[in-house]
Amino acid sequence: MFNFDRTDLQRFAVAAVGALILTGTAVGAAVGPARAVEKAPAQFAHFVAASEARG
C-alpha cells in the first residue's frame, strides 16, 4: 500500500533542508529590523537632547 524508497527519502531530505533555510531566512528578516528599532529611539533621543542643550 505504501512504498517508501530511496527517491522518497531524498525528496524528504531536500524538502527538510529547504524548509530549514526558509525558516531561518524568515526569522532573520523579522529579528533584524526589530533589533534596529530597539537601538534607534535611544540614539534619536540622545541626539535631540544634545541639540537642544546647545540651543
Rank of each mutant, 00 (worst) to 15 (best):
M1Y: 12
M1Q: 12
F2I: 15
F2R: 13
F2G: 13
N3G: 09
F4L: 09
D5V: 00
R6A: 14
T7G: 11
T7L: 11
D8S: 14
D8A: 13
D8C: 10
D8H: 14
D8Y: 11
L9H: 06
L9I: 12
L9Y: 08
Q10V: 14
Q10K: 11
Q10I: 14
R11G: 15
F12G: 06
F12C: 03
F12P: 02
A13F: 08
A13W: 05
V14R: 15
V14Y: 10
V17W: 01
V17L: 07
V17D: 03
V17G: 00
G18A: 13
L20R: 03
L20M: 12
L20G: 07
L20P: 02
I21P: 00
I21W: 07
I21T: 09
I21V: 15
L22V: 09
T23K: 07
T23M: 12
T23R: 08
T23A: 15
T23E: 10
T23D: 03
G24V: 05
T25F: 15
T25D: 10
T25L: 15
A26F: 12
A26V: 15
V27K: 06
V27D: 03
V27H: 07
V27S: 00
V27M: 02
G28R: 08
G28L: 07
G28W: 03
A29I: 11
A29T: 11
A29V: 12
A29C: 09
A29P: 02
A30L: 15
A30Q: 11
V31R: 05
V31C: 03
V31G: 04
V31L: 09
P33C: 04
A34S: 07
A34G: 10
A34Q: 08
A34T: 08
R35I: 13
R35V: 15
R35K: 13
A36R: 11
V37A: 14
E38D: 15
E38N: 11
K39P: 06
K39I: 11
K39S: 12
A40H: 00
A40W: 05
P41H: 01
A42K: 08
A42H: 07
A42Y: 05
Q43N: 09
F44I: 14
F44C: 02
F44M: 10
F44T: 12
A45Y: 03
A45P: 04
A45N: 08
H46R: 14
F47H: 01
F47D: 02
F47W: 03
F47S: 03
F47N: 03
V48E: 04
V48R: 06
A49D: 02
A49V: 02
A49W: 06
A49I: 02
A50T: 04
A50R: 01
A50G: 04
S51M: 07
E52F: 09
E52M: 10
A53P: 01
A53Y: 05
A53T: 04
R54H: 07
R54C: 00
R54I: 06
G55M: 01
G55D: 07
